[in-house]
Simulated assay, not measured.
Amino acid sequence: MARDAGLEELVWEDLGGLTGLTTKVMFGGLAWMLDGHLLCGARDVGLMVRLGKGNDTWALDEQDIEPLSMSEKSMPGWVRAGLDTCADDDLRKRLLDAAVAFVRTLPPKL
C-alpha cells in the first residue's frame, strides 16, 4: 500500500489545531494519534477511522464505508472509508469528529 499525500493533507486540515495530536508511519500509510491513542490512518485506498464499539452503525449505513478488518481479523469499532467518502468533505469531517469524540473518552496514554 502507498501513502496518499492529498488525503493526508485533507486529514491534517480537518484535525489541525488539536492538542495531543501526533503522527506515525504505520499500516502502509500515515496514522494520527490523539493523546497516545490511535485515531485514524490514511492510505491510498482511503481512511481507517476509530469510532469505538457500538458507535459505528451510522457510518456503516453509508455506501462507501465498511467494517475494518486486518489480516482477516475483524476490528470492532473501526471502519474503512473508501476514496469517495474521503472526497466528501462533510462526511470525512463527520467521521473524524466522531473519532475524536470517542478517543477523548479514553484516558491519555503516557
Rank of each mutant, 00 (worst) to 15 (best):
L83M: 15
E9A: 14
V79D: 02
T22P: 01
P108I: 09
D89N: 08
P107D: 13
L91V: 05
L38G: 10
D64R: 05
P76S: 06
E66Q: 11
L60E: 03
L110I: 15
A98F: 06
L21S: 03
M48R: 15
V49S: 02
T57D: 13
D64Y: 05
M48Y: 12
D84G: 08
G20L: 00
S69E: 11
A59R: 00
A98T: 12
D56L: 09
R3N: 10
T23G: 06
G77I: 05
A99N: 10
D88F: 03
V11T: 06
A59I: 15
I65A: 04
P67M: 09
E72C: 07
R3Q: 14
L91R: 02
L106E: 13
F102H: 15
L83H: 04
L39Q: 00
D56P: 02
A101N: 06
A42Y: 01
G29P: 03
L83D: 12
M1H: 09
L106D: 08
R94E: 05
R50Y: 11
E62V: 09
R92D: 00
K73L: 12
H37C: 04
C86P: 02
E72S: 14
M75I: 11
L34S: 01
G20P: 00
K93L: 05
L51S: 01
D56K: 00
M33C: 12
E66V: 11
D89T: 11
K24I: 03
L34K: 03
D4P: 02
L96A: 03
P67Q: 02
W12N: 14
T23V: 15
D88E: 09
L39E: 01
G28D: 05
L34M: 00
F27W: 10
V49L: 10
G82K: 07
E62S: 08
P107F: 09
T105C: 02
A81T: 06
T85I: 12
S69C: 04
V49W: 04
D44I: 09
W12L: 12
L15E: 05
K53G: 01
E72Q: 11
R3G: 15
L7N: 04
P67N: 04
S69P: 00
C86G: 06
K24W: 01
L83T: 13
S71D: 14
